[in-house]
């Protein structure tokens, strides 16, 4: 009986819509992580960037009473924060992982510190009257039964995540910048020898990832919730990195992987009503990611052996041809 209800809950349009909402703060930073990953600069600081933006957005929107100023300020703060990472990594030659860890510590501490100064509370910003971004109904689509509920009536970040995944795909595979970026990540020395400005491309990629992560952060504090909570990112920056790998380092793959993580989160809430411990359900995406790493590695191994085999056969054929001639 109970199980029936849960099943019904899972296959309802409302539930699928909620997966979209839960996944969005993963999709956006994951796209950022993908871009830096492909540029060969692993961005551990996604978590910190998200926190900074989430905080700035709430504070600025509360003090100006203008949502869009809050969003803009949040984006600016996130991009600036990622610029610190880029500067330390590319100009002061700090290890990017350590710089990322340092910035995460700084964001965690800094946001709580400032929150305490502004509100006198270390937990959340409920005393600040901050804004929420509007929810948008898409005309026509919202009237389609079932799909209308899934696709329409979300906050703007949900739509932004879909559009930005598409744009990221275009940028990475159909623009000169994207091709250069992937070349830099693949082999920086070769890229340098071709005259590609490695450092400035890496710098730009980190800034773009900062932009995307900041949208993810703003999504948390100005749409998902309407306030800032300490440590409200709760590891999403790291899950986003995992989504990059689970998605095979491709934009739509990353998008789907992030949705899988979101779905597991949503499912574990549903299972809470049954007697299945939520921990087991929440564990699934992490286990899947490790399995995906394994499968990815095995596939690459197989590809390499295949390529070597083909190469050997080709060379052998050449030698034979020469001998015959």
């Amino acid at each position: 009986m109970k199980f029936d209800l849960v099943l019904k809950g899972i296959f309802s349009a409302m539930f699928l819509a909620s997966i979209m909402r839960i996944s969005t703060p993963l999709i956006l930073p994951a796209l950022g992580g993908l871009i830096t990953e492909l540029a060969g600069a692993i961005n551990i600081a996604l978590e910190g960037i998200m926190l900074t933006s989430a905080f700035t957005g709430v504070v600025v929107s509360a003090f100006t009473q203008n949502i869009w100023l809050g969003v803009l300020a949040g984006i600016a703060a996130g991009v600036l924060f990622s610029a610190i990472l880029a500067y330390f990594h590319l100009y002061l030659e700090t290890d990017i992982i350590l710089a990322g860890i340092a910035l995460n510590i700084m964001a965690t501490g800094g946001t709580i510190f400032l929150l305490y100064i502004l509100t006198g509370d270390k937990g959340n910003s409920s005393t600040l009257a901050s804004g929420m971004v509007p929810v948008v109904e898409i005309p026509f689509i919202k009237d389609i039964p079932f799909f209308g509920t899934i696709l329409s009536g979300h906050n703007i970040f949900v739509y932004a995540a879909i559009v930005l995944t598409f744009l990221t795909y275009i940028m990475l595979y159909n623009t000169k910048f994207g091709i250069h970026l992937r070349a830099v990540g693949e082999n920086p020395t070769a890229a340098t020898s071709l005259g590609i400005p490695v450092r400035s491309i890496k710098f730009t990629s980190i800034l773009i990832s900062g932009f995307l992560a900041s949208l993810g952060g703003l999504n948390l504090s100005m749409a998902y919730l309407s306030l800032f909570q300490r440590e409200m990112t709760a590891g999403r920056g790291f899950i986003a990195l995992a989504a990059v790998y689970l998605g095979g380092r491709r934009p739509w793959g990353t998008f789907l992987a992030a949705i899988l993580f979101g779905a597991a989160d949503a499912l574990s809430n549903q299972f809470g009503t049954l007697d299945i411990p939520s921990q087991w359900v929440q564990m699934i995406p992490y286990v899947i990611t490790i399995l995906a790493l394994v499968i990815y590695a095995l596939r690459r191994k197989a590809q390499i052996t295949e390529q070597t085999k083909r190469f050997q056969e080709r060379e052998l054929a050449k030698v034979n041809n020469n001998n015959n001639a």
């Binding site: 700084m106 965690t108 501490g109 800094g110 510190f113």
Partner: peptide, 11 residues
């Protein structure tokens, strides 16, 4: 939490 920021700067 102010010290977190100091720690980060040191790193």
């Amino acid at each position: 939490e102010m010290v977190f920021v100091i720690q980060a700067l040191i790193i």
